[in-house]
Design a protein around this nucleic acid. Structure first.
Lengths: 142, 142
DNA sequence: CAGTTTTGCTTGATGATGTCAATGGTTAAC
DNA sequence: GTTAACCATTGACATCATCAAGCAAAACTG
C-alpha cells in the first residue's frame, strides 16, 4: 500500500470518486431546478413524488431517512402550499399525508419533467448501461 | 419515445440514477463520519482539506460553489475552533484563510482517514476502474 | 384487567447551511 | 479622478438537521 502502485491506485480512486460526485451533483442540480420551477425545495419535491398513496408521516420520514420531527415541518409547508393534507387513518396516532387535487397536479408535472430530464444515462448505449449497472452493483455490494 | 423500448429505457435510467445516488450517498456518509470524528461538519472538513495553502475566502467560496457570505460564517466557526485564521494578503480587500498549527494537524488526520476509507472503488479491478472511468466521462461530457 | 412500554406526531431549542440585499473599504478601469 | 468592479461582512430569512421533552394512542405484560 506504500509502493508506487498503491499510491497510483489511491489517486485513481479519488479521481473516480470525484467523477461520481460530479455526475450525481449534476443530476441533483437538475432535479433542484425542476423542483424550483414549481416553487418547491428538492426535499418537498421528493416527498410529493413519493406520496403516490396517502402515507403515514412516519413512513415518509423513513423514506427520506430523516427525523420524524423534520417531517412535521415539511408537511406544514406542503400543507401551507395546498399540496397535501393530513388525514386520519385507522390508528388514531397516525396521520396520513394525502395529496390534494393541486398536489396531484404538481406531482404529475414533476414526474413528467423528471422523466424528460432523465438524460443522465441517455448518453450511454444499452451495452454501456449494462456495464455501468454491473459496476455499480459491485460498488454497492455489502 | 412512447414505444416499449423507450419506456424500458426510462425505467432503466431511473434505476441507474438511483444506484449512482446510492454509491455517492455512501461515500458522502463515510466522509461525514470521518469529519464528525474530528467534530467537524462535512463542509468544514472539505474546507480544511482544500486549504493546503492560505487562500482568499473568495476562492474557497468558488471551490465550494456557495455564496461568499456563507464562507464568512464558515470561517468564523473554523476560527472559533482554532483551526484557521484570517491573514491579510497583498490586496487589502482580500483575507486569506490560513491553517493554524492545529488546523494543519486536523487536516493531516483528515487526509489520512479519507485515504484509508477510500475503499469506494477498491472493490473494482483495474480493468473495471478503467471501464467506470470511461462511462463517467461519457456521462459528464458536455 | 391494570400498569408499563412503545409508537407516532408535535414542539422547542439550537446549529449549519443556503439565499438575497445592502454596506464599507479597496482596487482597477476609463 | 471619477466610476466601476470586487471582497468581505452583515442582517434578514427559510430550510434542513439533531436532540430532548411531551402527549395521546396503541401494544404488550403480568
Amino acid at each position: 500500500m506504500a509502493n508506487e502502485t498503491g499510491r497510483a491506485t489511491l489517486r485513481e480512486a479519488h479521481h473516480l470518486t470525484r467523477q461520481l460526485f460530479e455526475v450525481v451533483e449534476r443530476a441533483r442540480s437538475d432535479f433542484a431546478d425542476i423542483a424550483a420551477e414549481l416553487g418547491l425545495t428538492p426535499l418537498q419535491a421528493r416527498s410529493l413524488l413519493w406520496l403516490e398513496q396517502p402515507s403515514p408521516m412516519r413512513d415518509l420520514a423513513d423514506h427520506l431517512a430523516c427525523d420524524a420531527s423534520n417531517v412535521t415541518g415539511l408537511a406544514d409547508r406542503l400543507e401551507r402550499l395546498g399540496l397535501v393534507e393530513r388525514v386520519g387513518g385507522g390508528d388514531r396516532r397516525v396521520k396520513l399525508l394525502s395529496l390534494t387535487r393541486a398536489g396531484r397536479a404538481a406531482r404529475t408535472r414533476l414526474a413528467a419533467r423528471v422523466a424528460a430530464a432523465s438524460t443522465v444515462s441517455a448518453r450511454l448505449t444499452d451495452a454501456e448501461r449494462r456495464q455501468l449497472d454491473r459496476l455499480l452493483i459491485k460498488l454497492l455490494a455489502d
